[in-house]
Design a protein around this nucleic acid. Structure first.
Length: 449
RNA sequence: GCCCCGAUGGUGUAGUGGCCUAUCAUGUAGCCCUGUCGAGGCUACGACCCGGGUUCAAAUCCCGGUCGGGGCGCCA
């Protein structure tokens, strides 16, 4: 709906949401909006049926309207003395119109109102919230991020797969699962595609990825957690932890590069809103490769030196991450965690010990600033070690035969990771809450819409 | 699960015991003007989360509930 000089005098039809309806008496201005932009429809009482004009003039905001008429150059606005005339704009002089669907008034969430709306109200009315330009831009960006990530993994030879979301038993342990009934059998919603990715690799697919939902029945209530989230997961045969970290940083680098090259207009829309809210603007700074690697042992030292209370073997908590983020504000990997803190399927090399002699693993995290984006690692492919790990973690190997049996017939060393899509988007869009970048988030207290 | 905070028109807010018949913006409805363009001017409409309690008097203080926000834990 932009331009128009070459269309002047042509008859056209256009449909969209009525963003504003102005004018009384014999004229009306309707600003129509669709996915491509805005166009003003100019209606004169004398130019159409009386009923049509009345319907247009009294149309409520956000009603969908189709107009037919001729393209004309707008009359230029009055400008102050000495100011240059603005560039020519075009409009449709309406000859006929149809109200396709009338919007109720008032709107629960104003689409163009200069009033800040709370997140909860916005999420209750997401279909209207999504009509706001910056919100729409964020979800277009989300689509792009998924596309670029997928493109990149395919370019590195990964096969897209889908794993079951209804599972019979916990796939990792640790987190709480949502129980459900699968006909007459108790079952759960999957917390991760982890074990199934591995089974696919063992079966010879070699390099797989999945973009799919994961469910966690944890009663967390923070800006970065949801109970249903989409994760970007990969698994690759003949790879170790360092290999898949490289895959990941190349993928993120590719996503940022492509967004910077193709989607700056979406970032601009987001920044226009941020400007109006006095918020910091976002910039698409393509991160340098390689990302810093800060081993767990080094991270402990950084936290200690920064005044944090922590000992080797402790988890690196959010307030510790703040200390690390002061030195490494962007993306950074945290490899080589203690084996005792990692799940049973993570690989360890008996020769690799930490500064206090504890067994290290080949598990790693990727953080951006204080926030964890990823966890991943090289996987244990030796079935006897796998079963010993299960016993060490008070899990019964008998319960995991559906998984461990896959390792009895020759297993390639392999590695992989899972990346929270929404968390990556928070970084890219500067969103302060994961709910901003999830269309219909599921959290502790929200199951609708 | 733990700690802290909050709930006022459709939306965002002001208000900390009587000045509240509750502020402002936005909205909605209407009028005026009008080829507006973030249009403008005028008028009207519309709210103190629920239940107890304290007090002569409660939007305001106390208790409980509900809902929401922030932080932590846990994680992606």
């Amino acid at each position: 709906m932009s331009g128009g000089a070459d269309l002047v005098g042509e008859e056209v039809s256009a449909a969209g949401y009525a963003e504003t309806v102005r004018g009384r008496g014999a004229i009306a201005f309707i600003m129509l909006r669709d996915g491509t932009g805005h166009i003003q429809a100019f209606a004169k009482r004398d130019n159409m049926k009386e009923a049509t004009f009345e319907a247009l003039q009294s149309a409520t905001r956000e009603s969908t309207i189709q107009v037919t008429g001729t393209v004309a150059q707008k009359r230029p606005p009055k400008t102050k003395e000495g100011e240059p005339a603005p560039p020519a704009e075009y409009e449709i002089t309406v000859s006929s119109a149809t109200i396709l669907s009338s919007a109720a008034a008032p709107l629960p969430v104003g689409v163009t109102d200069d009033v800040k709306v709370g997140l909860d109200i916005r999420l209750d009315n997401r279909y209207l919230d999504l009509r706001r330009a910056h919100v729409n831009a964020m979800f277009q960006l989300r689509s792009k991020v998924l596309q670029y990530g997928r493109d990149h993994l395919i370019s590195e030879g990964f096969n897209e797969m889908n794993s079951p979301k209804i599972i019979a038993s916990a796939s990792e342990g640790g987190t709480n699962l949502f129980p459900m009934m699968y006909f007459d059998t108790p079952a759960f919603l999957s917390q991760s595609p982890q074990l199934y990715k591995q089974l696919a690799v063992l079966g010879g697919l070699e390099r797989v990825f999945e973009i799919g939902p994961a469910f966690r029945a944890e009663k967390h209530d923070t800006y970065r957690h949801l109970n249903e989230f989409i994760s970007f997961d990969i698994e690759g045969a003949w790879m170790n932890d360092e290999d898949v970290m490289c895959v990941q940083e190349r993928m993120i680098h590719h996503i940022w590069t492509e967004v910077a090259a193709n989607d700056q207009h979406l970032i601009d829309v987001i920044n226009e809103y941020k400007t109006s809210q006095d918020e910091d603007l976002v910039t698409v700074d393509v991160p340098e490769l390689p990302f810093p690697r800060i081993s767990y042992c080094d991270a402990i030292e950084i936290v200690k030196n920064g005044g944090g209370e922590i000992e080797w073997g402790d988890d690196i908590e959010s307030h510790h991450c703040d200390i690390i983020a002061a030195e490494h504000s962007g993306f950074h990997f945290l490899p080589r965690w203690p084996m005792a803190m990692k799940p049973f399927y993570i690989y360890h090399n008996e020769a690799e010990k930490g500064t206090t002699g504890g067994q290290l693993s080949r598990g790693f995290d990727l953080n951006y600033g204080r926030d964890e984006m990823t966890s991943g690692g090289q996987r244990e492919h030796r079935v006897d070690v796998l079963e010993q790990n299960l016993r060490n973690m008070d899990l019964n190997p008998e319960d995991f035969t559906f998984y461990t049996d896959g390792f009895r017939y020759g297993a390639p060393p392999h590695a992989g990771w899972g990346l929270g899509v929404a968390r990556l988007l928070m970084v890219l869009t500067g969103a302060g809450n994961v709910r901003e970048v999830v269309l219909f988030p599921r959290d502790r207290s929200r199951v609708t819409p």
